[in-house]
Simulated scan of single mutants.
Amino acid sequence: MRIEARDIGRRLRDATPLLAEVTLSAPTGSTVGLLGPNGSGKSTLLRLLAGLDRPDDGRVLLDGADRRALPRRQVARHVAVVSQHTPDDADMTVGDVVLLGRIPHRARLAPVSADDLRRSAAALDRAGLGGWENRSWTSLSGGERQRVALARALVQEPDVLLLDEPTNHLDIRHRFALLEDLTRLPVTAVAALHDLDLAAQYCDEIVLLAAGRVVACGPPAAVLTADRVERVFGVTAEVGPDVTGRHRVALRAASG
């Protein structure tokens, strides 16, 4: 499924712009990274793509259809969201949290089925948490909660996966594992990321934001140039392909 934003604008009540004239296209099966400094509009854009907020200008399209015209339950069967913020005090087990992802696929008020349980267990296995169904949500670390949130999104079986800083709280091994998984899953993924090097290695396309506007978009090598990284992020960068051909970005503080 393709997801697009066309000339999206979002403003605060006092008319302060959060996003202006933002256009994004994530083709079916692609992994698109949203990059930019804090306050550039990455999370705001993801909320609009997810339907958690409405744009003041422009449209969000799913396979060419205006998202606002589609029934919420239909959208929930196709679009899953992994937020960077998870509740701290949910009195639930890990299994209960993951099974929330099956709600769009069950008839209203229908009980959890054996198939739901099987799919939940498979999603936890994929997230590296096999057998964790009975663990308490409140006992988990931030990184473990992030992986459970990913399992909940996977069990939803979406066509589009929207992720807000999904590598936050994860150790190095699980950061790589998550991004490797994203590139292999049969989904269209749009992820807000803060690690430029990981984004350069794993994303098919990059959308670079600054002050609520798109600075550049395209393949990582075209977007993440040394000059542009210094201009947008205020750090110097060495960029170029590694031995595998992946684009790499090595950062250091700008001198002077």
Results as ranks from 00 to 15, higher is better:
Val243Pro: 02
Glu21Ile: 07
Ala26Tyr: 02
Ala15Thr: 15
Gln146Lys: 12
Thr16Leu: 08
Arg173Gln: 13
Leu99Gly: 04
Glu230Trp: 09
Thr44Ala: 06
Arg13Cys: 09
Arg184Phe: 03
Arg6Gln: 12
Ala222Thr: 13
Ala20Pro: 10
Ala192Pro: 00
Asp7Met: 04
Ile8Cys: 04
Val229Leu: 10
Ser30His: 15
Glu4Lys: 02
Ser40Trp: 01
Asp115Gly: 15
Pro71Met: 11
Leu129Met: 14
Val148Gly: 01
Leu19Ala: 13
Arg106Asp: 06
Leu24Ala: 02
Val239Leu: 09
Gly33Ala: 07
Ser40Met: 00
Glu4Val: 01
Asp63Asn: 07
Pro37Val: 11
Gln146Ala: 10
Ala50Ile: 08
Glu180Arg: 15
Leu154Glu: 10
Glu165Tyr: 07
Leu34Lys: 12
His169Asp: 08
Trp132Asn: 12
Leu251His: 13
His194Glu: 03
Leu185Ala: 05
Met92Pro: 14
Phe233Trp: 07
Leu129Val: 11
Arg47Asp: 02
Pro55Tyr: 01
Asp7Lys: 05
Leu224Pro: 02
Thr244His: 13
Phe233Gly: 12
Val155Tyr: 10
His247Arg: 08
Leu154Gly: 15
Ala65Glu: 14
Leu196Trp: 01
Thr183Phe: 02
Val75Cys: 07
Leu109Phe: 15
Asp7Tyr: 02
Gln146Ile: 09
Cys217Val: 06
Val229Asp: 11
Arg106Ser: 07
Arg152Phe: 03
Leu124Met: 09
Val79Pro: 01
Gly36Ile: 03
Leu179Pro: 07
Val98Ala: 10
Asp91Val: 12
Gly143Phe: 06
Arg118Tyr: 07
Ser40Cys: 00
Glu230Leu: 15
Leu100Asn: 05
Ala199Asn: 00
Ala192Asp: 05
Ser136Gln: 12
Ala226Thr: 06
